[in-house]
């Protein structure tokens, strides 16, 4: 009999993927609520929040947990993708017409777009903070994320790409939310339909929430 030679079983991988994904979904709520503070006042509320977060040791620890969450989720995404590609060495001549949600079929693709976004996001903010990347002209403090955001978002091309990324993040989340519950075995005749609705609302709120910020800086904000 053939023997499994992988360290983690398929279902264990699914559990880890789902838990990491759920953690990332919680993080998004937190990140969005901080970012929305940019819209009130002239950014003092946002700056105070950033200051609080930078000085708080618990946040420092959570930063590492967050990196771990992303790394695990992304690494497993690649592992699953490669394994699944290999599980059908000869492809169908007629592509599958079985009805499935397009959001579910393109999880890896939307994930890859988020990954590209993340690389730029790090280059524009996190690496600047660490001093790995130079500050943009006109910014004098490595922690002045507000000014960095204003400069970036007033560039229409950057804002357009930002919006596009969040459309794809929304697609990822639309499937991801209910999928994580299913993967964890949290399935129930009564609650699953509600979970699906909440997932759709969550995906829309996150995408629209983040998208409001460049909209504000492009069309409403005047320094």
């Amino acid at each position: 009999m053939k023997r499994s030679n992988t360290f983690l079983s398929s279902i264990s991988k699914k559990y880890i993927m789902a838990l990491a994904g759920m953690f990332l979904m919680l993080f998004l709520v937190f990140h969005l609520s901080t970012n929305l503070l940019m819209l009130v006042g002239d950014g003092e509320a946002f700056e105070r929040a950033v200051e609080f977060l930078t000085l708080n040791p618990a946040v420092k620890i959570m930063e590492y947990v967050l990196f771990a969450g992303f790394l695990i989720h992304i690494a497993l995404g690649f592992v699953l993708m490669i394994h699944n590609y290999r599980a059908r060495p000869v492809k169908y001549h007629r592509p599958l017409r079985t009805e499935t949600s397009p959001f579910s079929r393109f999880m890896f693709h939307t994930g890859m777009i988020i990954l590209v976004f993340l690389v730029f996001h790090f280059l524009h903010f996190f690496f600047v903070k660490l001093g790995w990347v130079d500050m943009p002209a006109g910014v004098s403090d490595r922690h002045d994320f507000y000014s960095m955001a204003v400069i970036l978002f007033q560039n229409p091309l950057y804002s357009a790409l930002y919006w596009l990324s969040f459309v794809f993040l929304g697609f990822h989340l639309k499937h991801a939310f209910q999928s994580a519950f299913q993967s964890l075995g949290l399935n129930h005749t009564k609650y699953t339909p509600a979970i699906k609705v909440i997932g759709t609302i969550y995906a829309i709120l996150i995408s629209v929430g983040f998208a409001i910020i460049p909209f504000y800086f492009l069309f409403i904000y005047s320094p």
């Binding site: 009999m1 053939k2 023997r3 499994s4 030679n5 992988t6 079983s9 398929s10 279902i11 991988k13 699914k14 699953l80 394994h83 699944n84 290999r86 599980a87 059908r88 599958l96 079985t98 009805e99 499935t100 949600s101 579910s104 079929r105 999880m107 499937h175 209910q178 999928s179 299913q182 993967s183």
Partner: peptide
């Protein structure tokens, strides 16, 4: 059964529900 399923080289579920 899950061990055997993995050993046979089936893919991993991604909840497309096809």
């Amino acid at each position: 059964m899950v061990k055997q399923m993995d050993a046979e080289g089936f893919g991993f579920c991604s909840n497309t529900y096809g």
